[in-house]
């Protein structure tokens, strides 16, 4: 694990231009600065996502990414260091984020896949969870941990030219498990263009920042599907499933 503590120095005008946005006032920026974001995977999708959160001023990022850097990762994993092929990826990503985010950013980087216990533990402190993993097992794990903690969850994924983002309001909207109760059986060496994975990662980052800032609009409980080849956006309302165990856990937490 790499833990990079923040410096006491605070950047002055670093975020002035984004605070010109009508939805992001000083109070919203303060909320972002004081927030903790838990992210599973910082590869082709989660890397640009985490990068945008870091430069936007998020105060603490906790990331998990297993495995060593491969040459074939370098076409999309923008947080990794090309000269460090063969070394663990989570630590590399944490170092890059720390450099990008500046002195106010605290980063915890783990070089393994997040476990259920770790997700539960970190969701006690995190304000939001963001799933950017390539497997449904890991994304559902994060969905369940966020909902059990009564915290929002943003899920982002892609395959080839298809992308999707889902924002979950714990106990109020439909969740990823309502939509996909069990991991699909199809597995593949997914084709990926960095331009597409970064695009959906940044859409998820934009929504996560709005949620953290307390701004809207947020498409809670809507699967936002974008096909980059057809240039076609589809929004699908995801109803809460009566038998969803993750939503039931969220309801127990909110009582």
């Amino acid at each position: 694990m790499l833990h990079v503590a923040p410096s006491p120095a605070v950047a002055g005008n670093r975020h002035r231009r984004q605070m010109l946005l009508p939805w992001l006032d000083a109070e919203g920026q303060r909320r972002i600065r004081e927030s903790t974001v838990l992210i599973s995977r910082v590869g082709g999708l989660g890397g640009p996502l985490a990068q945008s959160l870091a430069v936007a001023g998020v105060g603490r990022i906790v990331l998990f990414h297993e495995g060593a850097l491969l040459d074939e990762d370098l076409h999309r994993m923008v947080l990794m260091h090309p000269e460090r092929v063969g070394e663990p990826r989570g630590s590399q990503a944490a170092e890059t984020l720390r450099r990008l985010g500046g002195p106010h950013l605290e980063v915890h980087g783990f070089d393994h896949r997040i476990t259920e216990d770790e997700a539960t533990r970190w969701m006690r402190e995190a304000d939001i969870a963001v799933g950017a993993a390539p497997t449904y097992e890991e994304r559902l794990l994060l969905n369940d941990a966020a909902l059990a903690a009564g915290k929002p969850f943003v899920d982002a994924a892609m395959y080839d030219d298809e992308t999707h983002v889902l924002c979950v309001d714990a106990g109020k909207s439909g969740c990823l498990r309502c939509l996909v109760p069990e991991p699909p059986p199809w597995r593949a060496d997914f084709p990926v263009l960095a331009a597409v994975s970064a695009m959906v990662g940044n859409l998820a980052a934009s929504l996560a920042l709005r949620i953290l800032a307390g701004a809207g609009p947020i498409p809670w409980g809507e699967l936002v599907h974008f096909d980059a080849a057809r240039i076609e956006l589809t929004r699908v309302r995801v109803p809460r499933s009566a038998g969803c165990p993750a939503c039931a856990a969220a309801e127990r937490t909110s009582r």
């Binding site: 999708l45 989660g46 994924a157 892609m158 395959y159 439909g174 199809w186 309302r237 109803p239 009566a242």
Partner: peptide, 26 residues
């Protein structure tokens, strides 16, 4: 979205049914 437990609905003539495969990758 109509998960398996919520598919007992009647379609109207000319209606469109969209089928989507969940995407996984990143």
């Amino acid at each position: 979205a109509h998960p398996p437990a919520h598919r007992d609905v009647t379609l109207r003539p000319g209606q469109t049914v969209r089928l989507m495969l969940p995407v996984a990758g990143g």
